[in-house]
């Protein structure tokens, strides 16, 4: 019996997300009186793999196959399935990001192992295994029992946090078998804008809505974001109008994010928008309409014209940074 964590890497590096997964797995493994094995797929240097031990991974198995270039859902499922068998894993943990969403359901169907995705806390009970997730687009919580002996969960990002718990992790090369039939999809071309802070990685997000009046006014949003080391986001009408790219759309049908600080500028806070941001630890709203629903979700609010407030806010942040 063990807890198996799939730790994705980005160009050979792990992210905070990976360390949060291991921290979370370690807490459950302690309760189950078992160990944590991390599975890494792709080329990751030993020094980087060792970092997983800082958060409680007892063993790290690293699978690298030259035929794998990027995510291939069938091949990944097959590799993880072989790791589950090798480690006799009874709990498998993924991140609830695009990779976790792509692979965990396939593994669930393959193993007939119950899957609960986007869980937000430790299981409330181990037998029967009971765990909580948000449902109805963050408008409610559901308590769910996984009825099968092998269980799979995906963890909603930034819902647990990182806990250091250093152990001397062993690292092992893992050589799973891959069949040609697992390799039917191929990545032909990759297009990436380099260097931009990703919305899903950002601890602070500055977001603009229709109250910003037009794409020409986004300079202040970007300036504030740069000052705070934040990523930029927008509401649906803004991306639908083409003022901002679609990958910035935050809300029910766009990105669902959970930064530590979310600053909503000229966003009224339609229920669909709130579904995408309500897991933020702290929400600041700037809106001229005192009845805007965003103020019900916000921790701090300024009722005022965002076009006037934003420049003042930028100056005040500059003063703070200068005095620090």
């Amino acid at each position: 019996m063990s807890v198996l964590v799939f730790t994705e890497n980005w160009d050979g590096k792990f992210k905070k997300l990976s360390f949060e997964l291991i921290s979370y797995a370690n807490e459950i493994a302690k309760k189950l009186n078992t160990s944590v094995t991390a599975l890494s797929i792709g080329k990751v240097e030993e020094e980087e793999l060792k970092k997983l031990g800082n958060y409680g991974a007892d063993k790290i198995i690293s699978a690298n196959d030259d035929r794998l270039k990027g995510l291939n859902n069938q091949a990944y499922t097959s590799i993880i399935n072989q790791a589950v068998a090798k480690e006799s894993a009874t709990l498998i943990i993924f991140a609830n990001n695009s990779t976790g969403k792509a692979v965990a359901p396939r593994l669930s169907a393959k193993l007939k192992a119950g899957l609960v995705s986007a869980v937000i806390a430790l299981p409330s009970n181990l037998e029967p295994f009971t765990i909580t997730k948000k449902v109805y687009s963050a408008k409610a919580f559901a308590n769910i029992i996984i009825k099968t002996p092998v269980r799979i969960i995906t963890l909603f990002q930034n819902s647990f946090g990182i806990i250091e718990s250093p152990v001397n992790a062993t690292i092992e090369n893992f050589k799973p078998e891959l069949k040609d039939s697992d390799l039917k999809t191929e990545i032909v071309e990759v297009s990436k804008h380099a260097g931009k802070l990703l919305l899903t990685d950002a601890e602070i997000v500055v977001s603009g809505g229709r109250g910003m009046k037009g794409p020409e006014n986004w300079g202040t949003i970007e300036e504030l974001a740069t000052l705070l080391g934040a990523a930029t986001a927008c509401s649906r009408p803004v991306s639908d109008e083409g003022w901002r790219p679609h990958e910035e759309h935050t809300g029910q049908t766009g990105k669902v994010i959970a930064p530590n600080l979310y600053i909503a500028c000229g966003i009224s806070g339609a229920i669909q928008h709130l579904a995408g941001i309500s897991s933020s630890k702290c929400i600041v709203a700037i809106n001229k309409d005192k009845d805007a629903p965003i103020f019900e979700a916000a921790d701090y609010g300024i009722i005022g014209d965002v076009m006037k407030v934003l420049p003042d806010l930028i100056n005040a942040v500059k003063e703070l940074k200068a005095s620090a």
Partner: peptide, 28 residues
């Protein structure tokens, strides 16, 4: 494979702390 046991609604959020627009420094 899984069973939905029950549902809960989120706790109401504590009231938003309002800051005057002339006093942005206070927000920072």
């Amino acid at each position: 494979l899984v069973e939905y046991v029950n549902y809960e609604l989120p706790q109401p959020k504590s009231a938003c702390k309002k800051i005057e627009p002339e006093n942005v420094k206070e927000l920072v």
